[in-house]
Simulated assay, not measured.
Amino acid sequence: MLTLALGSGALSAAQALNVRVLVASGPQLTVRLPVTAAPDPASSLAAAPVPENAWTVSAGGANLRLNGQDAGSPTLYLPPAPGSLVTVAGQTYRGGVLLRAVAGGVQAINVLDVEDYLRGVVPAEMPPGWPAAALAAQAVIARTYVSARINPALPYDTCATESCQVYRGVAAEKVSTDAAVRATAGQVVAFGGRPASTYFSSDSGGFTASSAEVWGKNLPYLIAQADPYSVGGPRAHWRLEVSAAQVAQAAAAYQVRVGTLRDVRVTRASESGRAQEVTFTGTAGVTRLSGADAGGFVRALGAASSRAALSGPVGPDTPLVVEGSGSGHGVGLSQYGARGLAQQGQDHLRILGFYYPGTALSQLAAAPGTGRAVLAQFRPLPALLPPAPLALASSHGE
């Protein structure tokens, strides 16, 4: 691996734990980094800033090419240093970058401290103007998510898109979310001594879903439970009309073959009110979808959530009416619920304790010499505080 310095101090020890994020890939990428000229020992003047270095990085054969010249290596590492920045494909990130020649193209992997990474994640996943406790809860589950994926044996740990968790680098950073990251430094949710699966969605619609009903995977802390705190979202309640052609197309994607559709209904719902069985009636018979396929079909109709009811009759002039509540899969933390709990005065630990019951709060660190994440200092997450009693006005004669 070819390693270059990002100015003086670039080869100094990294902070506690680094994460490697795939931020761009393509036939060629432009990489820019600001550098400072090394001081002249014969001069008393401070080093003058040098204009930004800009490289066009591509692949030629097995090696990378820099501005058209063979780099002599399939990888190029610009290591992170305190305060270092790098721009890849027009986006600026903290830390350094690892460039890899892969299948005739180039991958750019941002390498940075986990806490700096979260500064570009939390505001991309939750509105920065929301209450501090909700932002802190989002910071902890984002840190938990990535800590479970740090694996030095792989080329990178996570990606920057919704396929992983959204990461937008320096441009996304906000004062409020930076404060949430600092306030929760190192905190993760743990279960059985390992990072918990901290799934979250936008709005539970008033009732969280279990991991078993959505994905067929039973995790004891991802349960179906009433969630009266998840209110006020734009998808709290919704209704849509779906044409017969759209319904048929969605059904065909699930291999439903009943001739011309006449009726579609949710015939069994889960404890959380999400579709667990959908029955299709047509000119050629009756068939059913169950489990995750039932919920997937409802979502394929354009529904924001599978916590929905279907009106039934379908025809050329009769659209299928879909009515429901919530947005997303509903498993784990509801972001609107976290906001509601924060508005009621609950802190981030109690928010996490509600949405991931039976889990513990732990502290994240790096295993010496390995770059791997380890957890320590486990303690149970607290339950919600009881609501404050209403003040009763006194009156004479009582």
Rank of each mutant, 00 (worst) to 15 (best):
residue 200 F to P: 07
residue 238 W to H: 03
residue 169 G to R: 02
residue 198 T to H: 08
residue 199 Y to R: 06
residue 251 A to K: 10
residue 254 Y to F: 15
residue 168 R to T: 13
residue 176 S to L: 04
residue 229 Y to E: 06
residue 275 A to F: 07
residue 174 K to F: 01
residue 188 V to I: 12
residue 232 G to H: 10
residue 258 V to F: 05
residue 277 E to K: 15
residue 209 A to H: 11
residue 169 G to M: 02
residue 229 Y to A: 12
residue 178 D to L: 13
residue 225 Q to G: 06
residue 250 A to C: 05
residue 219 L to Q: 11
residue 181 V to M: 14
residue 261 L to I: 14
residue 198 T to S: 13
residue 255 Q to C: 00
residue 163 S to M: 08
residue 267 T to F: 00
residue 181 V to I: 13
residue 238 W to N: 03
residue 181 V to S: 12
residue 167 Y to A: 11
residue 211 S to W: 05
residue 206 G to D: 10
residue 272 S to W: 04
residue 173 E to P: 09
residue 256 V to R: 06
residue 193 G to A: 04
residue 229 Y to Q: 11
residue 221 Y to M: 10
residue 249 Q to G: 01
residue 168 R to Q: 15
residue 274 R to F: 08
residue 206 G to H: 01
residue 275 A to H: 02
residue 224 A to H: 05
residue 196 A to Y: 12
residue 187 Q to I: 00
residue 238 W to A: 02
residue 274 R to W: 05
residue 274 R to M: 03
residue 179 A to C: 05
residue 169 G to F: 12
residue 204 S to W: 02
residue 193 G to K: 08
residue 234 P to C: 11
residue 185 A to S: 15
residue 269 A to H: 05
residue 260 T to R: 14
residue 201 S to E: 09
residue 244 A to N: 08
residue 278 V to T: 12
residue 282 G to Y: 07
residue 254 Y to A: 07
residue 253 A to T: 13
residue 268 R to D: 10
residue 265 R to N: 06
residue 177 T to A: 04
residue 233 G to M: 07
residue 224 A to S: 15
residue 238 W to D: 02
residue 205 G to P: 01
residue 213 E to L: 01
residue 238 W to I: 03
residue 167 Y to H: 15
residue 252 A to W: 09
residue 206 G to V: 07
residue 201 S to Y: 11
residue 273 G to M: 01
residue 194 R to V: 14
residue 218 N to C: 00
residue 178 D to E: 13
residue 171 A to Y: 11
residue 256 V to K: 13
residue 280 F to G: 07
residue 229 Y to C: 06
residue 222 L to S: 10
residue 230 S to E: 05
residue 191 F to M: 05
residue 210 S to W: 08
residue 170 V to F: 03
residue 258 V to M: 02
residue 239 R to I: 04
residue 243 S to V: 10
residue 164 C to S: 00
residue 176 S to N: 14
residue 241 E to V: 01
residue 204 S to F: 00
residue 274 R to P: 02
residue 280 F to A: 02
residue 206 G to L: 07
residue 214 V to Y: 01
residue 237 H to R: 15
residue 217 K to H: 13
residue 245 A to C: 04
residue 190 A to V: 09
residue 212 A to I: 00
residue 200 F to Y: 15
residue 226 A to V: 14
residue 206 G to T: 03
residue 226 A to Y: 03
residue 254 Y to D: 00
residue 178 D to H: 07
residue 235 R to W: 09
residue 198 T to P: 11
residue 269 A to I: 01
residue 280 F to N: 02
residue 219 L to K: 10
residue 239 R to A: 12
residue 219 L to R: 11
residue 232 G to Q: 08
residue 232 G to E: 10
residue 186 G to A: 09
